[in-house]
Simulated scan of single mutants.
Amino acid sequence: MNINLLKQIPVILRSQPDPRFIAQQLRKPSGDFAKEVGQKMDIVNKPLFDLTLEVLNPNENDRILEIGFGTGKFLEKMFSIEENIDISGIDYSEEMVKLAKQNNPDLLSSDKLDLRKAESDSLPFDDSSFDKVFCNMVIYFWDHPKEHLAEIYRILKPGGAFYTGMREYESMLTFPFVEHGFNLFRVEQWENILVKNGFSLLESRRQQDAPLEIDDMKIQLISCCIAAGKDK
């Protein structure tokens, strides 16, 4: 292939984004596009992260796990609420792990933060290790939620809680790429799945996000956070 054409491929893909390609990148950011995809996810997901953090409400000495931390841009915000916590994070994308480590050198050197490449259906942690586990916009990529929820339940301490950040079903339909490999849930459907997998519902909160403009799209999403507990 002509070398000049190779150089133009990223530009072509940006100007004519393929929904299937976007869906693949959102599932697992990789290659030359990983950083750009991660940064755009940060823009779209910031209101959802803020809502989830508000519901999660870190307490002193909490040990917290984030599943799918992406660029890691928001991790420092958790320590601004409560300094005396320990946070671990896993991400499926090697590129995101590398980027998140670059974005949080001080926290990593302080041993308050541990970031790893791993998958949530096989968590590299001992039983009853965490007070709180959370994820944002991750459940859409779980082809078999039962396996992931069993692992989350296993590593939660008795009385611990799992926080799911997601968007309203109708909000997700705003994006054409959800037709390609996304497992969409209504809030009530996800709540039922949590209960069937041993969790007790604690709280569900919704908010209408401020309008966003990204890639010439104007969108307004509804964010949701569902808190579910592991019985003592």
Rank of each mutant, 00 (worst) to 15 (best):
M172H: 08
L201E: 05
K218R: 11
E82A: 02
G31I: 02
F162D: 04
K98T: 11
K46P: 00
F125R: 06
G70W: 13
M1Y: 04
R154A: 10
K218N: 08
T164N: 12
F185C: 01
Q189V: 01
Y163V: 07
E151G: 08
R154I: 02
E36T: 10
I214L: 15
H148F: 08
G70C: 14
K117D: 00
S120H: 09
G198R: 06
L173R: 15
S128W: 01
Q16M: 12
C225T: 08
L212K: 14
F177I: 00
G89M: 01
L221K: 03
P47Y: 07
A227D: 01
I139V: 15
D126Q: 09
N103D: 06
E170S: 14
G70D: 13
P10V: 08
R116T: 02
E82Q: 15
P29S: 14
L123R: 09
D50E: 15
L65Q: 07
L184C: 05
E82L: 03
T174L: 06
P19T: 12
L65C: 06
Q208W: 04
E94K: 15
L56E: 02
I152G: 03
F177K: 01
L48V: 04
N104T: 09
A150V: 05
E147L: 12
V97N: 01
V37Y: 04
R20I: 02
D131I: 04
